[in-house]
Design a protein around this nucleic acid. Structure first.
Length: 408
RNA sequence: GCGGGAGUAGCUCAGGUGGUUAGAGCGCCAGAUUGUGGAUCUGGAUGCCGCGGGUUCGAGUCCCGUCUCUCGCCCCA
């Protein structure tokens, strides 16, 4: 199916490396792993993401269930987590810190690093209004990228959208300015002017950019409180040694963001450059019907990260057991099972003569081969061959386990 | 959703302007080696040429449709 992908051995290993690294580091910062359903009532997304966002207006997989309810496969993780936070009445114990991973669904035109079913990892921190929370969340993202070995490939950009008041002021100023130049804006931006004027700021269209040059700056519209908040976020990041670059054009596509917006981007993935992005969303819990609770979080694309990381270690090198003569299938399997129960990784060939089995052992990247039966077998011993050196020794069956320790 | 490129063996690719049995390298299989892998040598099989339709005496090659991938836009993780 278009825009979907099977995760086969190698891709799955990369995928797991990303998820496991993130889950481990998130847990260290107190983010417990949670899982919410991959579908929700459609209104959960409609109310949280904003009706004018592209995700809601054209990218959702929405369907009616048999009772007539409108359901939607989740296009992102935050809305579901917040819904779970509300329905589980978790506001009793704040802050709430959750880590999630799993598939997301958006009906988009696929590209490399952009799929219709893709996977995200993410964290949400609810109930902390302090800038320190933003810092902790961003620093966790940075540490995960570092642990994955991709920190050198990405750059952190941050901006502030201000509080509600700042945002309203700025929005008005921006719209006033852009209206005066609307005939020079691209077709896309003409539409954005009505629906989401802030987005025009990061348009790639060259003529748009010329108009934007003269646009009023967001920073000039910030209230003192919003400005102070952002300063403290920046100070915190600096104190932690997390390098960032201010980008006044950085905005968010989803309505629920305020204050801090940030994005780790890379130029190694073509135009799908965002690998981990998020921000603060103080109004979201209330918008979904919960008690007013501030929040901050991020999400990262697992496939995008998986493409950036180095090849993870392969599977553990196995021991291979092969018979020296016929009729030893049961013996081979019993020994294999015994060694597996002792913690060894063991493979058995199912057919073929010794040459064929050795060949297969080689392909499996076996660490050693254990040959049973034959004349050694009649002496109560097995042949153990080191597949790296070719060195071969006869080992009594009752001391086999301890002899194999070196190949574990 | 808009615009460009591509689809030939398991993989990477070659197949001027249509012309019999579609090729290479790597990999795979078999043998040289019936108690031993990697290296070498010898031999072998690779295939609805993405799918469907059309033009033609004849289509991998030209045309249309469709699917998938890919690049850019849009959007975003």
């Amino acid at each position: 199916m278009r825009g979907t992908h099977d995760l086969l051995a190698d891709a799955m290993r990369r995928h797991r490396k990303v998820e496991e690294t993130a889950a481990t580091l998130a847990a260290r910062s107190g983010f417990a792993e949670i899982a919410t359903p991959i579908f929700e009532f459609t209104e959960v997304f409609g109310r949280s993401l904003g009706d004018t966002s592209d995700i809601v207006s054209k990218e959702m997989y929405t369907f009616a269930d048999k009772g007539g309810d409108s359901l939607t496969l989740r296009p992102e993780g935050t809305a579901g987590v917040v819904r779970a936070f509300i329905s589980g009445r978790l506001h009793q114990q704040l802050p709430f810190k959750g880590f999630y991973r799993g598939p997301m669904f958006r009906h988009e035109r696929p590209q490399k690093g952009r799929l219709r079913q893709f996977h995200q990892i993410g964290v949400e921190l609810l109930g902390a209004a302090e800038p320190l929370a933003d810092v902790e969340v961003i620093a966790l993202g940075y540490d995960i990228l570092t642990a994955l070995g991709v920190a050198d490939l990405v750059q952190l950009e941050i901006n502030t959208l201000g509080d509600g008041e700042s945002r309203d002021i700025y929005r008005q100023r921006l719209v006033d300015y852009l209206r005066g130049h609307s005939e020079r804006l691209s077709e896309d931006s003409q539409l954005r002017l009505e629906r989401n004027p802030l987005r025009i700021l990061d348009s790639k269209d060259p003529t748009d950019r010329a108009v934007i040059e003269g646009a009023p700056a967001m920073s000039a519209s910030l209230t003192d409180a919003a400005k102070q908040f952002f300063d403290r976020v920046c100070e915190g990041l600096t104190a932690l040694g997390v390098a960032f670059q201010l980008n006044e054009r950085l905005v968010r596509g989803l309505d629920y963001y305020c204050h801090t917006a940030f994005e780790f981007t890379t130029d190694a993935l073509g135009s799908q450059g965002a690998v981990l992005a998020g921000g603060r969303y103080d109004g979201l819990v209330a918008a979904l019907g919960g008690p007013a609770t501030p929040g901050v979080g991020w999400a990262a694309g697992v496939e995008r990260l998986a493409m950036l990381i180095a090849e993870p270690d392969g599977a553990k090198r196995p021991l291979v057991i092969a018979p020296l003569d016929d009729g030893r299938d049961v013996e081979v399997l019993t020994l294999a099972q015994r060694l597996r129960r002792a913690g060894f990784t063991v493979e058995v060939g199912f057919s073929g003569n010794l040459g064929k089995r050795m060949k297969r052992a080689n392909r499996l990247n076996a660490r050693a081969a254990i040959l049973i039966g034959g004349t050694e077998g009649s002496r109560g011993a097995a042949v153990v061959r080191d597949m790296e050196t070719g060195e071969q020794v006869e080992v009594p069956l009752d001391s086999l386990d301890s002899h194999l320790e070196r190949f574990r």
